[in-house]
Every structure is written in C-alpha cells, then in structure tokens.
Design a protein around this nucleic acid. Structure first.
Lengths: 152, 152
DNA sequence: TTTAATTTTGACATTTCCTGACCAAATGGA
DNA sequence: TCCATTTGGTCAGGAAATGTCAAAATTAAA
C-alpha cells in the first residue's frame, strides 16, 4: 500500500470522527508520515478533489491550516437529473420540493435555493395568467438549474 | 488559531454588543492580547477594511481612540430604492444594469446576481409571450430583491 | 521488455503573521 | 509659544505556514 493511500485512509477516518470536517496542519501530517510536505498536497489533489466530494480550504502563514470538508458527491449528476425531470410545466409545491431536495443534497446553497424560490413564487408571477404559470415556472427553474450547472 | 483571529473575534463580538460601533484604545487592546500595538493595525487593515463592511476612524494624542463602525445598513437602503425603482415592467438590458449596480455596491454576491440574471433572461421566459415579458421580468426581479432584503 | 501512469521528492515561490524601529499628530503645562 | 508626553500610523524584515512545479523513482499495463 502506497504512502498516499495510508494518508488518504488516515484523513478519511479523521473526517468520520470529526463529523465531516477536519482541520490540520500540513507540516504535522507530513511529519507523522515521515514524508515531505508537498506529498500532502498530492494526496489532497488526487483523492480529495471536488469530484470526489470534498472541499479543501487552506490558509498560509503563521497559524495556517488545511481544512477538508465532506460535501455531497456528484452534484452535477443530481443537477442533470433534476433538469431533465422538471418537464414543460411544474406547480409551486412541486418546484419547492425540487429545491428542497437539491438543497439537502448540497447542490444548492440555502441562499440560492431561497432566491430561486422567490423567483418562482406566485408573488413573482402575478403578471402571468394562472393557467400559464406552471409553464413559466418550469422555464425559469430549468434555466436557474442550468446556470447552476455551468457555475459548478 | 492565530492571534489576529482572536483579536478579530474579540472585536466582532464587541461590535455586536455595542450595536455596530466600538471605540477603544490601541494600547489597551494590545496589552490585553500581549502583542505589539502595530498588530492591532494589521488586524484592522486585513479584516476590517471597507470591502469587509467596516469604517475605521481614529485620533492620536491624549485621549486618542480607534472607532470601528459596521456599515452594512447601507445595502438595505440601496435595495429599497432599487425595489421601488423597478416599476411594473422592465426590459432585459435595464434589468441587467440594475443587477450590475447592486453587484458593484456589494448588495448582491456575484453568484446571486448571476442567478437572478439567469431567471430573468429570455431563455427562462420563453413560455411568456413577448409583449408580456417585461411585466413578468419586473415581478420576478422585484420578488428576488425583496427576498434578498429579508435575508440581509 | 517497453511504455505509460502514478507516486515521491526537493527546490523555490507565495501568502500570512508578528515584531520593532521610527514617524506623525494631539494634548497640556511651563 | 515651546516642548514634553501621550497617543496612533507606517514600513520593512524575519518567521511560519502553504502552494507549485518538474524531475526522479516506482509501479502498473501492453
């Protein structure tokens, strides 16, 4: 088993114990495994990338740190599925359910979900005749999701 | 956690307790944290800059002071004005200009501005007859801004 | 056995933090 | 007025972290 695998395993276990967020110092970890610090970067980029469902933040200088956060894996797949599932019309409650799901899956931030919710509400669509609102709502929702997909 | 972070935290809490304005003496604060006075300046410039939403005033000499003021109430006024200015209908370019202004004023994040832009675009409103799009757009934009106002 | 992919290492760059020496302004008393 | 005292400001440099990149070593695949 390569050293990178050991480091990965260590970090995964740490993440489990810490409930999804682990904060550490690169030098410490490197010392613990008797390797050069830059090897930690290698492990982070190859095994803790966003595609693998992790977010890595860091800060340099005195008191610097590296923070690894477990996020939902494969947001793009979920988004694609959601976009296809919206269809040509969608009523308010269904749209709200969609947003709630994507929020809980971590694909949308709370702020984004609420913002889209505001754009989809009946208050926002007052200028649209009732019988056409579901179609308009679908168009807006889809476009917002497509936008989110592109931003990801 | 670096000392600068501790000082920042202390000041933020003080600002909360004081309702947005904190007045203090550089030497006192430095002594409290056992650091050199210039470290206070470092914290102020790196964490309480105007971009971060703070105003820092000071005076030297006997009875000198440093006053930190939270200047986030500004965005709410801008938002109110914008909401009132939208009116009952708004075309695409005008809406884009609105968003750009609010973005530059720091009222909207880049992500939020783009998201609203996506919800307002012709692609999202293709289910709406052209002659009614400006009215629908105004409704959505207004509702998004109202939502942002409530979140602030 | 070759060839390609992955891992490991180290030199160098960049960012952030902390300190201290020196500078500038306001105050107050002689 | 003059000057000593009391504040805060500025700047440069060292220290403490992380980031980058490419070459060397190893391992896996054809």
């Amino acid at each position: 088993m390569a050293m990178s695998d050991l480091i990965e395993k260590f970090l995964l276990q740490l993440l489990d114990e810490m409930g999804g967020v682990a904060e550490l110092q690169r030098g410490d970890l490197a010392e613990r495994f008797s390797c050069v610090p830059s090897q930690i970067n290698y492990v982070l980029t190859t095994r803790f990338s966003p595609e693998h469902g992790f977010l890595v933040e860091s800060r340099r200088g005195g008191g610097g740190y590296i923070r690894i956060t477990r996020v939902s894996p494969e947001p793009t797949a979920l988004l694609m599925h959601a976009i296809n599932a919206v269809g040509g019309a969608i009523d308010g409650p269904s749209a709200a359910a969609f947003l709630k799901n994507l929020l809980q899956a971590g694909v949308l931030s709370l702020g984004a979900a609420r913002l889209i919710g505001a754009a989809l509400g009946d208050a926002a669509l007052r200028a649209v005749p009732r019988e056409r609102r579901d179609a308009v709502r679908a168009g807006i929702l889809k476009q917002c999701l497509v936008h989110t997909y592109h931003v990801l």
